[in-house]
Structures are given as structure tokens and as C-alpha cells.
Amino acid sequence: MSAPQPQGGPVARVLGLLGRSRELTLVALMLVMGALVTLGAPQFISVSNLNQVTAMAAIIAIAAVGEALTVMTKNIDLSVESTIGLVAFLVGVILREHDLPVPAAWLVGVGVGLLLGIANGAVITIFRIPSIVVTLGTLSIFRGVVFILAGGKEVNLVDLPPGYADLATDSVLGVPVFVIVAVVIVAAVGLLLWKTKFGRQIYAVGSNEEAAAIMGIRSRTVTFTVFAMCGALGGVAGVMWGIYFGTIYATSASGLVLQIVAAVVVGGVTISGGAGTVVGAALGALFLALINNALLVLQLPQELLQAIYGAVILVAVSADALLSQRQRRLAAREARR
């Protein structure tokens, strides 16, 4: 094994273990934070509160998985929040105005998400325009389509089939359905990255595109596919967003991309590409959702929430950076021996 075993006492050993994996750091932070918040506000740990938190976290996590794929290839998809908004609204309109079975409407929603992703990927790879520019444009275009579709009106919960919004809090064997969907998606995409050629190619393109090309990898095909996947996953998140809120406005999910990108980065996917996991991105989403909720249940002054939220993100990422630097120093010392 190349990774040395952490040296020293139990504390050092635990820190060493955490430093090697962003995922473990996040889990540890969430446990510590959960315990502290429960002391101050016991309702934090209640089933109904945790169901609320995890349902929202599941939606963000699914979008973050797609976003993580683009970031791993040294790209970014800023338009994903508009995809979520557009799909959520479209599914609502379909259910309100057409006599389509609910699953069919969902399928249309995911399909539209896929098409939007394909549009992003096509423009980026055919015209070779940086993805940040392309998706900044489609962020507005997709949102513009929602406004046209809405024509000044929103989709109301009462227009939808009875009990539609309850799906968000339904559970199977005590596990919320949304969480099951998110876990299945994270597992599937995680397996793709870990165990398939395509997954390896994603990391190679993000790490060194020139070298990847010389090794016979079609980096543009990889980039295109990643954006298509990000769109489809945005579609899934959009469908779930619609179920969660029931009432959908033309501006729904505006600004959500910041949370999605934050989840990806907090989850340990490096913004310069080539490294990270989707498990990390999903845990990042859960972490952010928990912080959001903790700030609410602790009943801190409203005007402080935004600033504290940002500060907690920075503290978490800095702590992880410190731990992994320490880990690298240990490893280097080990290698010199």
C-alpha cells in the first residue's frame, strides 16, 4: 500500500483518517453539528424535521451529482437551476392541462432535462466555447422559456392530482422515497465513475485534456455526454422539486445553482477538475441542508442566517484543507524514509 498508516496517538490517527477522505470529514462534521444543535433545539432530531431536511437535501444532491460530473471534466453547468425550474413548471402544466398519467409526465420532465443538457453539451463542444459562458446564456434562456410557459401565472397545488405533494414525505420501510431515489442515483453514477471506462475517461479529461487526447480519448464526446447527464439529472431534480413544493412559480429554483455548486465543492470535487466523488457531492448537499435547517431551528436572528451559512461552508472547507495538508506532509515524510 502506498498510503501510510497514520502515526501517533488515537487523536492523531482519527485526524489522519479524516484528512484522507472528504466524505469522512463531512460525516464527522455532521454528527458533531447534529449533536450540538440537538442540545440547543431538541426538535432538530424529530422525524418530521429530518424528513423535511432530507427531502430537500435529496433534490440538491441529485442536481449536485450532475454538476459534479461537469466540474470533474473542468467544466461547470450554471444553467441547471433553470432546468430544474423549467421541468418542475412543465410537469405541473402537463398534469394540470392534459390527461396524462403522472409517471408519463415525469418521464417527459426528465426527457426535457436531457434535451436541455444535450443543447448545452452541443454548443460547448461544437463551437468550443467555455462552458461557463454557454451555461450563463442558457441559464437565462431556459428561465425565459419558463416565463413564456407561465404567462404570468403559477401552477397551484390544487390543480394537481390529489395527494400529489405527499409523495415528498412518503417513505418505504421508514426511509423517505426521495432519499431512496437519491441513494440509487448516487450509487449508479458512483459505479459509473468507479468501475467503467467512461468514468475513467471523465477523470482523465478533467486532469489533463491534452494527454487524454494523445491516449486516444475523445474528450469532446466525454464533455458532451457529461452535460447531457447533468441535464437529465437536473430533470429528475426538477420533477422532485415540483412534488416537494406543489405550487410552482416561474421563478422557482432561482439562485439554487449557488447551493448546488457549493455542495459539489464542499463535497471535495476540485474546481480545477480531475478529482472528487459523487458520494462527496451528495454528502455536501446533505451537509448544506442540515446547516440551513439547524440555523432555522436554533431560531437565530433572520438577518444573520445568510452570513453564518457562508461562514460555516468556509470553515468546513478550510478544516478539510488543513487536515489533508497535514496528511500529505505525513505521507511525504513516510515516503522519504
Binding site: 475513467r200 477523470y203 482523465a204 486532469s207 489533463n208 491534452e210 494527454a211 487524454a212 494523445i214 491516449m215 486516444g216 480519448i217 480531475g274 478529482a275
Partner: peptide
């Protein structure tokens, strides 16, 4: 460094990539 290797990858992953 520029063209021949994916430096972040292990020896195994570099050798099998193509």
C-alpha cells in the same frame, strides 16, 4: 508532463488508460 501522463492517476490507471 504536458502530454504523456495523467499525473493525478496511479501507475496502473495510466498504463491501462489507452
Amino acid at each position: 508532463h504536458q502530454d504523456g501522463l495523467v499525473l493525478d492517476f496511479s501507475i496502473t490507471n495510466n498504463i491501462t488508460l489507452p
